[in-house]
Simulated assay, not measured.
Amino acid sequence: MKLFHAVALAVLIAGPASAASDTAQTALTPSESWTDLRGDITGDAEIADGGGVFNVDAPYRADDAATVPIHITQTDPSTDIKSLKVVIDENPAPLAAEFTYGPAMAPLDMELRVRVNQYSNVRVIADTGSGLLMTGRFVKASGGCSAPASKNPELALASMGQMRLRPFDQPQMSTPRREAQIMIRHPNYSGLQRDQITQLFIPAHFIDRIEVFQGDDMLWTMEGGISVSENPVFRFQYTDNGATDLRVRATDTEGNVFEHTLPKDAQG
Results as ranks from 00 to 15, higher is better:
Leu84Trp: 15
Ala6Val: 15
Pro176Thr: 06
Leu155Lys: 15
Pro232Trp: 14
Ser83Asp: 12
Asp80Gly: 01
Asn55Lys: 15
Thr79Ile: 15
Asn152Phe: 09
Ser146Tyr: 00
Gln172Phe: 12
Asn152Glu: 13
Gln214Ser: 15
Pro30Trp: 11
Arg123Asn: 06
Thr26Gln: 14
Pro77His: 00
Gln199Gly: 00
Asp80Leu: 13
Ile197Asn: 02
Gly255Cys: 08
Thr35Asn: 13
Leu155Tyr: 11
Pro232His: 07
Leu108Asp: 03
Pro171Glu: 05
Gly224Ala: 15
Gly268Val: 11
Arg185His: 14
Val53Ser: 10
Phe138Ile: 09
Tyr238Arg: 06
Leu28Ser: 04
Gly215His: 05
Ile72Cys: 00
Tyr101Gln: 01
Leu37Ile: 08
Leu262Tyr: 06
Gly129Trp: 12
Pro92Gln: 04
Gln172Trp: 11
Ile226Asp: 06
Gly50Cys: 03
Gly39Val: 10
Gln214Gly: 05
Val124Thr: 07
Asp64Ile: 09
Glu90Gln: 13
Ile88Phe: 08
Gly224Arg: 10
Gly255Pro: 08
Asp57Leu: 14
Glu259Tyr: 05
Asp44Phe: 04
Ser18Ala: 14
Thr175Phe: 14
Asp252Thr: 03
Pro107Arg: 08
Phe99Val: 08
Ser227Cys: 08
Thr67Glu: 13
Gln181Lys: 12
Glu46Trp: 12
Pro153Val: 07
Ala243Gln: 11
Ser227Pro: 05
Lys151Ile: 04
Leu157Met: 07
Glu46Leu: 09
Tyr60Pro: 00
Pro148His: 10
Val53Phe: 08
Leu9Thr: 14
Gly242Lys: 09
Thr79Ser: 13
Glu154His: 03
Pro187Asp: 06
Gly136Asn: 05
Val7Thr: 13
Val257Cys: 02
Leu192Ser: 00
Arg177Phe: 05
Ser159Lys: 14
Gly15Asn: 13
Phe213Gln: 09
Phe236Ile: 08
Ala156Trp: 03
Pro107Lys: 07
Gln74Pro: 00
Arg177Thr: 13
Pro77Ser: 13
Ala24Lys: 14
Arg164Ile: 11
Thr198His: 08
Ile72Asn: 03
Asp63Met: 11
Val53Lys: 01
Arg209Lys: 15
Ser190Arg: 10
Asp57Asn: 13
Arg247Lys: 15
Glu230Asn: 12
Val116Ser: 09
Pro94Gly: 02
Ile226Phe: 02
Ile202Val: 14
Thr73Trp: 03
Val56His: 04
Glu98Thr: 13
